[in-house]
Design a protein around this nucleic acid. Structure first.
Lengths: 108, 108
DNA sequence: GCGGTATGCAACTCTGGAATTGCAGATCAA
DNA sequence: TTGATCTGCAATTCCAGAGTTGCATACCGC
């Protein structure tokens, strides 16, 4: 997977309100799919699919605890994404600023 | 719009590969919808819709230049998103680390 | 063992959005 | 004026994915 397509995948995973609710809850405590289903207004299977998506892009990890499987959020993954976006934003601004200055420069 | 729903909207906008290509091109130079359509393998109308989405979440801005409308990327918007995600990632990690320490602490 | 609960898999529905084509209006350049 | 190009709007097609229900399986406590 290229860098851009991975960016796209993570952003796509973050582009769903239900997944944000899941992440927000998991950010407070470690929970199982069934526990999440008791809180959120969707079925356990729907949540299971969201958890799968979030796991695929590395935003959460799962761990078996006896009979149940608990999920926890990986803050570092979000940090990495944040830094990447910040870096891109700076690069774009810098380049366009450069073009503008070039256009405004009195060509000697 | 709440803070979370705005985060969701921006991430959703960034969750499409074609939109990333558009942003990438606009990060290099200011272009019109027709100019983008000449480069990308989709129709001008499809690009127009993508530009509308990107504009709605504040990632690009448009400017009329005579007969055509050119679009430019707003790097600061991406910076803001990056910082927000970074902040969230840190908060989640900190809280879960706190829980873990609490669990491992020898209760006096 | 038995009931309750948690997980996993599969089939199905259905809506949103990505993309297309077609057409009409506006503007520049010859 | 006329032709070429850019834009904007509308109707349509099509598919990914969000959500559901149903069932089978595995595990814990009593």
């Amino acid at each position: 997977m290229t860098a851009t397509s991975e960016l796209t995948a993570v952003c796509s995973a973050l582009g769903d309100p239900t997944r944000w609710e899941i992440l927000s809850l998991l950010g407070e405590e470690v929970l199982s799919a069934s526990a999440l289903a008791r809180v959120l207004p969707v079925s356990r299977q729907a949540i299971a699919k969201h958890l799968e998506v979030l796991t695929e892009v590395g935003l959460i990890a799962s761990e078996r605890r006896g009979r149940e499987v608990v999920h926890l959020v990986i803050g570092a993954r979000l940090n990495a994404l944040g830094h990447e976006l910040d870096r891109l934003g700076n690069a774009w601004d810098a380049r366009l600023r450069g073009i503008k200055e070039l256009a405004e420069a009195p060509d000697a």
